[in-house]
Structures are given as structure tokens and as C-alpha cells.
Amino acid sequence: MHSKATLGLKVAAMCGLLFLHLPILLIFVYAFTTEDKSYQWPPPGLTLQWFGVTWNRPDVWEALGLSLRVAAISTVIAMVLGTLCAAAVARFRFFGRETISLLVILPIALPGIITGISLRSAFNIADIPFSFWTIVLGHATFCIVVVYNNAVARFRRTSSSLVEASMDLGATYFQTLRFVIMPNIATALLAGGMLAFALSFDEVIVTTFTAGQQQTLPIWMLEELVRPRQRPVTNVVALLVVLVTFVPILAAYYLTRGTETVAGQGK
């Protein structure tokens, strides 16, 4: 049953939403300001010059490239490991199943700073120099979680008798994987992968502990903010980050909605 919300409730909801999203709009507006030393409201004038400036800054390109590479590789690692783990937990009963399920999800519940510190000290003990790969490893720990969560939910919603039906009809293990399992979990995997990519792309905390001299894009932004030089460049980059992370999250949302019913279970 739907009942009409009171005016007061509507106003409160609007205020809440504005409070959440106005600051983001401010960031976008500052990308066009003519003042480059401090953030001044209202902007004294509007200009597109910062887009050109950003385009010509090699440090921006370097950070962006690193972020994209880290996100891509951690996502691939997360998709392989997360899916395998989800398949095991959803399909089989074995000793320690619940524990494994909890341990996989733990990195997202743990504060990033704990993950960061523990990884850093582990790398130190193992005498591993900080590099591109230590960043990837750090990101993979929490990227696995989102892939795992998406995949495990889909595996549980896919009736296990589908696999048996496929084998009963003469399909080998490989054919069953290709023609039945993959089509049924593909959208969940894609959604998980996109979320993982977005998470990795804007990660700061774990990265500060696991990166050496390299700067990912979010780290670069953090450094830029304390230096009052061409400030709007940071805002231009922020706009870019929002676009890069927002598109996959939106796509993931559209890919996984409307699949509430259990596949192959309808009667």
C-alpha cells in the first residue's frame, strides 16, 4: 500500500539529497574557475583553459595510466579467484566452508588502514620491494570480495539441477561450463568486475601503504591539494574520475537488476 508522504518529509528528503550531492557539483564548478590559488565562491570567472592545461601535464597522464593498469589487473585477478571461490562455496560442502566465506569477505569489513598496514609490514618482512605489483596485490584483496559476492549470489540462484540436466543430456564437463554455467553467471561476473574496477580506481588508503614511488590518480590528487598551484587541474581530474567510476557502477546496476527469480527453478 502506498501512502502520501507529508510535505515536511518531502522537504527533509530533498535537503538530505542536496546535502549529499551539492558538494560534488561544487567540485565540477571549480574545474571551470579562473582563480587558481584558492577556491573562491562565487568563481570570479569561468574558463575552459584548465582542460588544456591538464591535457599537457605529463604527471596526470602517468598517474591515470598507472591507475588504469592497476585497476585492470586487480580486476582480472579478482574475477578469476573470486569466481572459483564462489563456485566452491556455493556448490560444495566441505570442512571450513563458512570460515572461508567469512575470510574472503573480511577485507571489505576491515578498515582500509588495517589492510594497508598489515600488507606493508608483510611486504617488509618478506623483503618485497614496493612496486606496481604490490599495489595490485593490495587492491586485489578487496576486489575479490565484490566479485565473490556477485558470483556467489548468482550461483545460489542458479538451480544446481541445471548442471546435472546438462550432463544428463550428454554434455561433458567442459561443454556444461561453456553452454550452461557461463551464460548463466556472465552478467553477475561482468557486474562484479565493473564494481571491482571502480573500487580499485579510486582507492587511496591501501595504496598509500603499498605503493612505492608511483602515484595512482587518487594519490596524485591528494598531493595536488596541498600544493596551491594550478588547483583547478585537480578538479578537472576529479570530473574524470567520477566519469570513469560512475559508468561501470551504473552498468553493473543495470546488469544485475531484474534477476530476482531463481534461474531454472520456476514451476
Binding site: 538451480s159 539441477s161 541445471l162 546435472e164 540436466a165 546438462s166 550432463m167 544428463d168 543430456l169 550428454g170 554434455a171 561433458t172 550452461v180 551464460p183 548463466n184 534461474a263 531454472g264 527453478q265 520456476g266 514451476k267
Partner: peptide
């Protein structure tokens, strides 16, 4: 002999039709 090489076929309780 694995299920895919037996001369038998099954009609499952939940039918197990491939939804895709």
C-alpha cells in the same frame, strides 16, 4: 560411467530447463 555417456535421460523434478 559418467552421466553423459549413459543411455538414459532424466526428467527432473524442477524440470531444470535452461533459462537462457
Amino acid at each position: 560411467v559418467p552421466p553423459y555417456r549413459r543411455p538414459v535421460n532424466t526428467v527432473f523434478q524442477d524440470y531444470a530447463l535452461f533459462p537462457h
